[in-house]
């Protein structure tokens, strides 16, 4: 009996020791859509970096603006050179917290992520409803939200104003793995 209890104690301790404190997504996906009667613009970035600290629920996201992939080369050129100015502002970042996050909970939970998003030299507080799935130690975060172009100091020439929606729809999906740094 003593041996059994000792073995059980060791197994429990070992499994706790294996729980990572941080998880990382190196190939997170962020895509955006602009729908207008003139044209639809869609782009996706498949190399978005994100790290979650499972102990306090803090989350950080970083992406290169020039890794968005567009259907047409001209859209990409306008995006990088005229609107986002990716040479001057190469990255967009988000730092925040998953409110009420229970990292131990297996299955699905829906939480609000609140934090500061920085892009094109503008910082803005965001609250994003996010689905969190945990299965076999892996976490997947996904969701959709809308934001307005005017918030980010992006100048669109009047001639092209009809081609770009005022409100942009953004989708995200991150698959996290244990992270030892």
């Amino acid at each position: 009996m003593t041996k059994f209890l000792l073995a059980l104690f060791l197994i429990i301790n070992f499994s706790y020791a294996q729980e990572p404190k941080k998880v990382i997504a190196r190939q997170g996906q962020v895509s955006f859509f602009s729908y207008t009667s003139v044209e639809n613009i869609k782009a996706e970035n498949n190399q978005v970096l994100s790290i979650i600290n499972l102990e306090d629920g803090s989350i950080a996201i970083s992406m290169l603006m020039n890794t968005f992939v567009f259907e047409k080369a001209l859209m990409k050129e306008h995006f990088n050179e005229s609107y986002i100015e990716s040479d001057i502002y190469p990255k967009a970042t988000f730092e925040g917290n998953i409110l009420g996050f229970d990292a131990a909970l297996e299955g699905e939970q829906t939480k609000i992520i609140k934090g500061i998003f920085s892009m094109h030299g503008v910082t803005k507080e965001l609250e994003i409803k996010t689905k969190i799935e945990k299965s076999q130690g892996k976490y997947i975060l996904s969701g959709t939200f809308e934001t307005l172009v005017k918030y980010y100091n992006i100048n669109i020439p009047p001639l092209l104003a009809g081609n770009i929606a005022k409100s942009i729809s953004i989708n995200f999906r991150f698959e996290y793995q244990p992270y030892e740094n």
């Binding site: 190399q47 992406m63 290169l64 890794t67």
Partner: peptide, 11 residues
């Protein structure tokens, strides 16, 4: 070559 975050990215 696109740049680097934690990792270097090539498309």
């Amino acid at each position: 070559f696109k740049g680097a975050l934690k990792d270097i990215i090539l498309l």
